[in-house]
C-alpha cells in the first residue's frame, strides 16, 4: 500500500514512545462530516463520531437512520462518500475497501454474509490475516465450540445463531483491532442473544475496539461504553452507558419504542 507509506513519511518525525502515547490518546477511529449516497439518494448528511482504543461504542437509531450505511461507509463499500474517516490517523475516504481492511478494520455485515460454497472452516479461514496478534483457529473454536463440531458443514446449513457466531468468529483471526458489527442479535432467540452479549464482552476484555450497530437498545446498554444516536443520516446525540438511566425517556423518544 504505497499511500500509507507516503502518509507516514509526510508526518513529522517523532520518537517511538511519544508517537505511541499520541496514538493511544488520539481516537482510533474518527468520523467527520461523513456523507454517503446510493445512486441518486443521499443517505448520510454529515456523520460525526469517534471511538477510542479498546472502547465499545454503539450506533443506535430507528430503521433507515443510516447506521448500516455508516458502517459501510467506514468500510468503503458505498457507491459514493465524502467527508473524513481517519483510522490511526490515516484517511480512509478515497481508498477501496480491500485497502481499508488491510489497515486493521474487520467487518461483520448485517446479513452475515456466510458463503454457501464454502464449508465452515473455509469460511473461518477466508479473511486474510492483516496484522499480527489475531486469534488462532484453536482459540476461535474454544470460543465457539459449535463451529468446531460442524467445521465440515456447508456454511449456510448452520442455524441462524451459529451463522452469526461464524460471521463474528471469522473476523477474529485477522488481527484487526477494530471490529464493525452490524446488528449481530437480529432475529435470534433470547438465549443466543445472551450468548452473543457474553462473547462481545469477552472480545472487549481481550482489547478489541468495537463499533456495534444495534436496534435492540436493551442489549446495547448491557455491553457498550457509550451510545451514539442517529437520526436521518446524522448523529444527533451521545449518551454514556452510565447516564442511560437518567436519559431513558429521551432515548425512547429517539428510538420510537
Amino acid at each position: 500500500m504505497p499511500w500509507c507509506r507516503k502518509s507516514r513519511q509526510s508526518s513529522k518525525p517523532m520518537s517511538v514512545p511519544v508517537m505511541a502515547e499520541a496514538l493511544l490518546k488520539a481516537p482510533l477511529l474518527k468520523v467527520d462530516g461523513l456523507q454517503a449516497w446510493y445512486g441518486e439518494s443521499h443517505i448520510l448528511h454529515g456523520v460525526d463520531f469517534e471511538i477510542g482504543h479498546g472502547e465499545l461504542v454503539t450506533l443506535l437509531g430507528r430503521n433507515g437512520a443510516g447506521k448500516t450505511t455508516t458502517l459501510k461507509s467506514v468500510m468503503g463499500i458505498v457507491e459514493k462518500r465524502s467527508g473524513s474517516v481517519t483510522f490511526e490517523g490515516r484517511q480512509l475516504v478515497g481508498h477501496p475497501s480491500n485497502e481499508i481492511a488491510r489497515l486493521g478494520i474487520a467487518y461483520c455485515p448485517e446479513e452475515r454474509g456466510i458463503f454457501s460454497s464454502l464449508n465452515v472452516e473455509e469460511n473461518l479461514l477466508l479473511p486474510p490475516v492483516v496484522k499480527p496478534g489475531g486469534m488462532s483457529l484453536a482459540e476461535i473454536y474454544q470460543l465457539f465450540p459449535n463451529l468446531e463440531e460442524r467445521k465440515r458443514s456447508q456454511g449456510t446449513k448452520l442455524s441462524g445463531g451459529e451463522q452469526q457466531m461464524l460471521a463474528i468468529g471469522r473476523i477474529l483471526r485477522t488481527g484487526a483491532p477494530l471490529l464493525l458489527l452490524d446488528e449481530p442479535t437480529e432475529g435470534l432467540a433470547p438465549v443466543i442473544v445472551q450468548r452473543i452479549g457474553e462473547i462481545i464482552r469477552e472480545l472487549k476484555s481481550r482489547g478489541f475496539t468495537i463499533l456495534l450497530v444495534e436496534q435492540n437498545f436493551h442489549f446495547a446498554a448491557t455491553v457498550a461504553d457509550r451510545h451514539y444516536v442517529m437520526e436521518d443520516g446524522r448523529v444527533v446525540d451521545m449518551i454514556a452507558s452510565a447516564d442511560v438511566q437518567q436519559n431513558i425517556g429521551k432515548l425512547q423518544a429517539y428510538l420510537g419504542v
Partner: peptide
C-alpha cells in the same frame, strides 16, 4: 463486495 471488504 464482502470478499473485498475482508482485504482481498
Amino acid at each position: 463486495t464482502l470478499v473485498r471488504a475482508f482485504g482481498i
